[in-house]
């Protein structure tokens, strides 16, 4: 532990952090789970999904981008925050076509898992937006169904920063913002099945599809079939 390190609390538990660390980085290091969708280990923080919203000394902040600070009092697992997080997950469900029973990602899907964790059990008040963008199956090994995209941007950052390619990018504004590829379709990009951007840990939902790998793990034995997302450490 460096001499510059300091402490703050998350839900009353004292956590140690070093200057420059975000609240989430310090929480992860301390084994405290803060729900998140757009943030994933190894990629730049985006602060876009807002599911990691916490109260930092009373003020709302995205834990993935907000720097930790000495003596900060962070609230994480409160009813109020989890209600807001559930609203955000509901919004993401309604923005796209998330029909779990027919989706190959079911059981491995972080959005679905987050809905279980946040007890999203009631029907929605309004019908979803039901986008019908064409599926891009042009690439021999990869398909893209952006109707299931939650705009987390993990593939964008992975391709740009890890693969050094820039295959994916956002286009459009507001509700029309979506992930697009750097070419007329995926086949006309440098995308490769071995890219980090198209690996299983990057896309949290069923948007990026690796062809010929479907159902290699049966439903019921998948990552989040065993327990709630975020509680994996506890169950082992």
């Amino acid at each position: 532990m460096s001499g510059d390190s300091f402490t703050f609390t998350i839900d009353g538990v004292e956590v140690t952090a070093t200057p420059g660390q975000t609240i989430m980085e310090a929480a992860d290091a301390a084994g405290i789970y803060i729900p998140r969708l757009c943030d994933v280990e190894g990629l730049r923080h985006q602060g876009g999904c807002r599911v990691c919203t916490v109260k930092a000394s009373g003020r709302s902040a995205a834990a993935c981008t907000q720097p930790a600070a000495p003596d900060l009092v962070v609230d994480n697992e409160t009813d109020h925050l989890n209600t807001m997080r559930r609203h955000l997950v509901e919004m993401l469900f309604q923005e796209g076509n998330h029909l779990c029973p027919v989706c190959e990602a079911s059981g491995n899907c972080e959005l679905q898992a987050m809905a279980y964790r946040l007890e999203m059990v009631e029907p929605f008040r309004f019908p979803g937006l039901e986008p019908c963008r064409p599926v891009d199956a042009s690439h021999p090994d990869i398909a893209l169904d952006t109707n299931r995209c939650i705009s987390c941007g993990r593939c964008i950052r992975a391709s740009a920063d890890v693969d050094g390619k820039g295959i994916f990018g956002y286009v459009g504004r507001g509700i029309h913002r979506r992930v697009a590829v750097n070419g007329s379709d995926l086949a006309h990009t440098d995308a490769d099945i071995n890219d980090h951007a198209v690996s299983r840990q990057v896309c949290p939902v069923g948007c990026i599809i690796r062809k010929r790998e479907g159902f290699s793990i049966p439903i019921g034995e998948r990552e989040y079939d065993h327990g709630l997302i975020g509680d994996e450490g506890d169950s082992e």
Binding site: R50, E95, F126, I175, R177
Partner: peptide
């Protein structure tokens, strides 16, 4: 507001659409 939201974050991008519907 729906038209002018940049779309970066979920609540503003999607939430406003449903407020408008309501």
């Amino acid at each position: 507001f729906v038209h002018e939201s940049c779309g970066y974050c979920t609540p503003c991008r999607v939430g406003n659409v449903f407020l408008h519907k309501a």
